[in-house]
Nucleic acid binder design. Structure first.
Lengths: 189, 189
DNA sequence: GCTCCTTACTCAAGGATGTGACTAGTCCTA
DNA sequence: TAGGACTAGTCACATCCTTGAGTAAGGAGC
């Protein structure tokens, strides 16, 4: 039960609809959680049933009506309870890593291609996070914002996301280079 | 279906029993995958049924008998097929990140404690990975090993694991410092 | 005029993962 | 000599997460 808390945390910035959350989970939250719309709608329904959030219907003219959700006091309590509990350590869990682990038994050229592709994706995410960070801190410089800004939670996780993607990019390019070099040398000496 | 391939990749270093794999998944593989024994036994049974691995019974005197598994040719093909397919990008998916995202609404002291604890765990893992890397490359220095070593797959993923944990450690200590400083200054100016 | 994209949300099904308990013999230590 | 840890593995359940499809309306572009 942790998507639950990710949703609660996301709703701390104010009212959101399921649809908006689905978007948010593809950008801001994306560095540490990912979820498809179906999951979010299901989770929102459960959270509302349990009284941790409340929804209000907003009637719209030109587009479908929507429901906006807010965290209740009970929801805040639940978040605090969650934060006090222990967290299990995380791992990376990435298909690409599995493939590299099997590099010795697998088509290298393919793998190099995938690594380079992934490096490009990481690069794009870095830019995205840079933009988000700039937007969040506004005029203030980083030290200033971290010391006195409001809502630094998302900023801190975004820093982590950016660092992760930098790491990702560097490892992918380096690994691709290593495999490429070996493939070149490897006409069975 | 990816634990499947992680198991196949792990079996590339030779015969393993379910029990040994469970151990291996808590150290070498641990940087990019984690699985409980039950899952592994279940997966091994499925892999054997599908002919991707074969097991042989080993009778032991002083301890329970065990079954050792090896990858078959069909298993290798499956791994290659998997490596050629596309991989979905990964995220970090960590409880602690969710808590930090909610930092503005949650008990800071608790969080700082958890971050420092996590930094210590990361430090320990870094040492572990350092040891593994040294053991894998033996006498050779890193560049030499990467250029000409056999079985560099696990070495490369281990490098990634170490970089990840370094990143983890640094972010945790930095974030703890930020939150601590704010808690100090924050007697509601 | 047709198709695609966007907003907004729902339903169903199945595989993947996690939790907890249980068997059973051996070795080590206090 | 009793308690704990290690080897080796199994069963059952619950929840999480993914996959794939579907509804319905308005607006943009060709």
């Amino acid at each position: 039960m942790a998507l639950r808390h990710a949703v609660l945390a996301a709703l701390l910035d104010g009212e959101h609809s399921g649809y908006q959350l689905a978007k948010a989970f593809d950008v801001g939250m994306a560095n540490f959680w990912h979820a498809l719309p179906q999951q979010l709608y299901a989770e929102l329904a459960k959270l509302e049933r349990d009284g941790l959030i409340t929804g209000r219907e907003v009637v719209q003219e030109a587009r479908p009506n929507k429901r906006l959700f807010t965290v209740t006091d009970a929801g805040l309590d639940e978040l605090r309870r969650f934060a006090a509990g222990q967290s299990k350590p995380s791992s990376v869990r990435d298909d690409l890593m599995v493939k590299v682990a099997a590099a010795d038994a697998v088509d290298t050229a393919e793998l190099v291609g995938q690594l380079e592709e992934r490096a490009a994706i990481a690069e794009a995410k870095i830019d995205l996070f840079d933009g988000l960070l700039r937007r969040m801190r506004g005029d203030a410089d980083e030290a200033e914002f971290l010391a006195r800004g409001r809502r630094i939670g998302p900023y801190l996780t975004c820093l982590r996301g950016r660092a992760f993607e930098r790491e990702n990019r560097d490892w992918c390019t380096r690994t691709a280079a290593v495999l490429r070099a070996r493939a070149g040398a490897d006409v069975r000496r």
